[in-house]
Every structure is written in C-alpha cells, then in structure tokens.
Design a protein around this nucleic acid. Structure first.
Lengths: 347, 347
DNA sequence: TTTGGCACTCCTGGCGTCGGAGTGCTAGTA
DNA sequence: TACTAGCACTCCGACGCCAGGAGTGCCAAA
C-alpha cells in the first residue's frame, strides 16, 4: 500500500487487469474479472473501482464502451509493487544451463548464442551487450613479422580475446627485434589493467630498444582494438517473435523496431542508464523516451564476471509483456552466463 | 528471339509489363501500356497479345477483370533475354567506393559494413557470405604462455585474420619451449596452404621437440578455427526495407523471412549453388525451392580476391524487384569489395 | 457500501449497392 | 489478314447501413 490512492482491493484489481490483459491482449471487462477470478464482489463494484483507477491514471479505456487497459503508470505500479516475482521452472533453468554449456568458448559467439536462446525462450526480441570490461587485464602482446616490412601485433587480455593490428613499416625490421620488443612490453605491462597500458610508456620502451616509432603506433593500435571491446556491440535476436503479437500486425510498428535494432544506437541508449545499476531494470512505454517506442517495454538485467567486467541482457517486447516471467528468464540467463564467463576467464 | 513463342512485339510487351509492374506494384492494364509507352498499336491489340502471353505462361491475371502480372516464367524470360543491363550511375559508384574506403580493415567488420551499405542502396535485404578461403595461406603460428599451464595458440593467415585457441595443460611447460615450437612450426609450414597444414605433421614436430601431445591439440584447434572462416557465416541487413513494399504489409510474409534470415541455413542453401559459378545468378519465386519464398527473388553476385578466396553478395526482395538495377548494384559492390580485399591481403 | 437493473454508447461484422476498371469478343475497317 | 472501335460483361473494392453484442455509467434499492 505504498501508493496512498490504492487500497488493497484496487491494487488487486489493477494487478488482475494487467495479468488478464497480458494474457489475452483484449481490454478487460468488469465481468471477466468477477467470472475468472473470484473477487467476492459484483461486477458493478468492480466497475466503480475501475472508474476510480482510471481517474487515478492507472487504467485507460480504448473507447467508451470497452473494457480497461493498463496505462504506463498502471504497468509501473504493477511492476514495482504488485507483481509476484516469478521463479524459473526447473525445466527452464536446465535448458539455459544446457544450452550455455554447449555454447562456444569464443566470447562473441557465446554472446550471440545466449542472445538467440533468450529470444527463443522469451518469445520476444532479446539483445545483449558484449561485456564492457573496464578493467580487463593486459596479458600478452606479440609482434609477429610476416614480411620484412609487414607484421601484426596481437594483444591477449584476461577476457581471452585477442585483438590484432596489422602494420606496415617504411624500413625493414628484424624478427628478433620484434621478439625483443614483445618481451620487453610483456615484462613491463604484465597483468596491468588494460586501460593503464598507455602510449607514452609504450613509446619509452620502443625508444629504449632503439626501434622505429612506427612500432609504437602498431602496438598502441592493437591495445586500442582490445580496448574497443569496451564499447559494447550489441547482439539482437528474435525479431520475428514480435510478429506473433497482435500489436505488431501493423507493419509500420515493426519497421521502426527493425530499424532501431539494426542501428544499435537507440538500443544502446536504452540500456545505458540501466548500466549504472546492478539491479534489473524495467522501462515501460514512454519511459523509453521516444514516441516510436511508446507501446514497447524493455527488461534489462546485468551480468558480470570478475570485479568489473559486465554487460547487459535485455528483452524488448510489447508493453503488454509478462514482466515477472521475463525478469526471471533474463536473471536466470544472466546468472548462468556470468558463471560461464567467470569459468572461462584467464586468471 | 530465342524463345520461339515470342515475336518481337510480344517480347516488348512482356518487358514493358514487367517494367511497369515493378514500378507500380499494380496489375498492368492494356490501356496503361498504350498510354505510357507509345507502342503504336491500340489497347485492343495489346489485349490480344497479352491473352496469348498469358496462354504461354508469361503473364497471369489476379482475377478476371484485372490487368496482368508477370509469372515466374515471365520474369525469367525478362531477366534472361529482355532486360537491358543497367550501368551504375557515377554517383552510386562513387558512393560505394567511398563507403568501402572508409570501412574497417577488419575482415568481419568490412563484410558487415558492406552488407549494410548494400541493403541501404538496394532498399532490400542484403546478405553477404564471409569469404570462403579455400586456399588461404598459413602465415604464422604463435604459442603464448599466459600461466604455467595455460596459454593460447594464435594463427595468422594470408587473410590477415588471426584465429586463436586457448589451451590448458596438465603439466607445466616452459615459455621457451612454446617459442621453440612456434619457430619450428613456422619454419615448416610457412606459406603453405592452410588446408595442407595437417595434424600428423604438427604431431611429428611436437614429438621431435619432445613436447606434450596436448600442444598438438592446441595448435590443431587454432588451425581448425582459422579454417572455420571457410564455412561462410552470413551477414544480413536491411530487413526493414522490405516493409516498404506493399507485398509485405501482411505480417506473416515478413515473419518467415525474418526467421530465415536468423537461421542462416536457408540463406546458405540459396547461395550454395550460385557458388559454383562465377557469374551473377538470379533466382525467381519458386526457383528458390520453397513455397514460403515463392514471391521473393534473390540476386547473387560473387566477389573474390586472390586466386580462390571468394564469397557471395546477395540481395533478397520481392519477386517484383528491379533486376537490372540490383544486378548492377551488387556487381559494382562486389567489384569494389574484391579490390579492397585484394589490397588488404598479406602477400 | 454494495449490487441488480437498465439505458446508452460504441465497436464490429455482415450485407447489399454502386461505380469503375479492365477484359473478351464481335463486327467493322485498312 | 491484322488491327481497332465499341460494347457488354465481370469482378473488385469502397461505401453506407444495420443489427448484434459487449461493456459501461448511473440510479435506486438493499
């Protein structure tokens, strides 16, 4: 009863309207409530209550003689105060575990597969940011000579990802020099945070070994590339699931969503502020900040491994979504994924 | 006049019907033809001709008193014999060149960006296979020690891609041993075709250096992973463009397409037989082999670099697509992409 | 405060009508 | 013989109308 305007009965009615509307996609009538859920009161009373809920902004009527539909505020109240957290079924839990166990060890592919699975399980559009590893550790750099003036710099981090940068030089360099440089860099930077592997220090080492400054550029580029795993690319899957929902039978709706997914920028903005928190976040309708997205909602759950490396796991669907279930699915997946990643991390 | 049943006038009428229908998405009436294209004959004559074209299977009538629409066979004849190859406008050509010049040097990203561009330019769904490099060359392998019993094997090929494989050993191994093994492998395999880097030869070298057989597995896994660039993953972009077409206002159509795109398998089948040829290929409607895809067409153009590395660049859209223009766009993009890749390849 | 009852509103779907677009055919013309 | 003008015919699609039904709001009674 946090909200002063909502006594227990109103709260229950609101919750039931949300529940029923999520299930049927039809405006909910007073009679439906009294028949399907035994409220112990008549439909007339329910009508009175619903009229007040509408006055309070929790429900809206598509037209005069129709049932009620939750408003953004209605969903919000439901999510924050009324709904019962759902637990994953054992079957779901097992399925998540099995699918992730069989998934690739390669980070990008693992994220891709997780996204697909989540899209499938949730029957909505799932998107997952690749982990933003603020503090991944520098593990190794290796400069490899491919031709007298061509080579590649490869950086390995604690995420197990290697980043590479091809380089071409204006003068020949001996393979041994590249090896010497690699060793020196490794000795100097080993197990430092990647963000602390700075260009000036690299330059100092290059100069000390009397090597061309071009090599500094090559190493810096590879480090930069490894660091770019930090601006999270986003994998998305399951757009076709949305077409099952009646609200997307209009093609225009879907078009804007597809565009948004392909562009990624908007998706990123959606998760960006959820990013600051370590708790699940739910954004409903207009809370997404765009008229185009006004009848959608997004559930976002963080996953993490190691002290600071983390990413976000989101489900996007119609506002009329089963919030509790999707939160459970996302949380369960996040948990398993976190664990899977922690296991794979290079200590 | 290859086809015996089509005299010059019928051919022209068929071509015009296709052209007009592609432009308007409306069944084409006899009067429309005489008014918009000066045929020098009356609409009644056109009607007679169209009736014969329908009898020949080139046109169909959605209903009795409607205009004509091309059939699969009609489009096929148009594509094979009637349409005039289109040349890219200078503006398009420049745009392709500019976008690809600014694109990433990283292979996967380059392919992604190319796909997006092609989707945008063509206003349809584009998909591109990553290059299938039958004969990419082995350039370098580097075994890196990350911890006494953990390391990573990295393989660099002539595509400039590095593949990696983490390994864990049951007993310690000295960093120098890994270096020795790397050198031996490099000396032995340098510039061999990747497919010829066989496990038995690797095993022989490992044994010769008296190293644990686990390292053979690690190296083989990395080579295998590099080789897996050969089973082409497919990048797709532009699904939302399809929604502009009236034939996709029905959501079900789109759903099957989205599913197909996400699964990739069907996409792969579509390009698979085009793969054998070095010429552009066009598949129309039922030629795609599935009732679900019956009102779609796909244009496929190969790109290549080096002697054997190659991939496919496809555009999928409604059967009613501007074939000549899409072929020109795909070909132009393929050409520029091929060149871009050839420049980046490690000699 | 609750509830039964009732009048009212508005949506929805079915039905018939009507206009127009386009054809096929016939008869006439070059 | 090939073309064309004209006309009757077909069929689609839009429109308006109506009836049915779902659901409400409100009133008056418990």
């Amino acid at each position: 009863m946090k909200s002063p305007g909502l006594d227990q009965r109103k709260a229950y009615i609101l919750a039931t309207v949300v529940y029923e509307y999520v299930a049927t996609a039809e405006p909910v009538a007073s009679q439906t409530l009294t028949q399907k859920y035994n409220l112990g009161i008549s439909s007339a009373t329910v009508r009175n209550e619903m009229a007040e809920l509408e006055a309070g902004g929790y429900l809206v009527q598509p037209h005069t003689s129709a049932g009620r539909v939750p408003s953004d505020a209605g969903y919000r109240t439901y999510v924050d105060q009324l709904m019962e957290p759902e637990a994953l079924t054992a079957a779901d839990r097992r399925r998540i575990r099995d699918e992730l166990r069989d998934a690739s060890r390669e980070l990008d592919e693992l994220i891709d597969q997780t996204t697909r699975m989540l899209g499938r399980l949730s029957n909505n559009l799932a998107f997952v940011t690749r982990p933003q590893a603020d503090t991944q550790l520098f593990k190794h750099v290796q400069l490899i000579s491919l031709a007298p003036r061509t080579g590649v710099a490869i950086v390995v981090t604690s995420l197990g990802v290697s980043a590479q940068s091809l380089f071409e030089l204006t003068s020949d360099v001996a393979a041994e020099d590249l090896t010497r440089l690699s060793s020196a860099l490794n000795a100097h930077f080993a197990d430092r945070k990647l963000r602390d592997v700075g260009e000036t220090e690299i330059a100092a080492i290059v100069t000390e070994l009397k090597l061309t400054d071009e090599l500094r550029g090559a190493v810096a580029a590879a480090v930069q590339s490894a660091r770019s795993n930090e601006t999270p690319a986003i994998a998305a899957a399951g757009a076709q699931n949305l077409l099952d929902q009646p609200e997307f039978h209009d093609a225009r709706k879907l078009q804007s969503i597809l565009r948004i997914v392909e562009e990624q920028r908007t998706l990123y903005e959606i998760v960006a502020d959820a990013m600051t928190s370590e708790n699940p976040s739910v954004k409903i309708g207009h809370e997404l900040g765009s008229e185009e997205l006004a009848d959608l909602s997004v559930v976002t759950v963080p996953y993490s491994f190691g002290p600071d490396a983390s990413g976000m796991l989101s489900i996007l669907g119609p506002r009329r979504m089963p919030y509790a279930r999707l939160l459970a699915l996302a949380s369960g997946t996040a948990e398993t994924l976190s664990q899977r990643l922690a296991d794979a991390e290079i200590k």
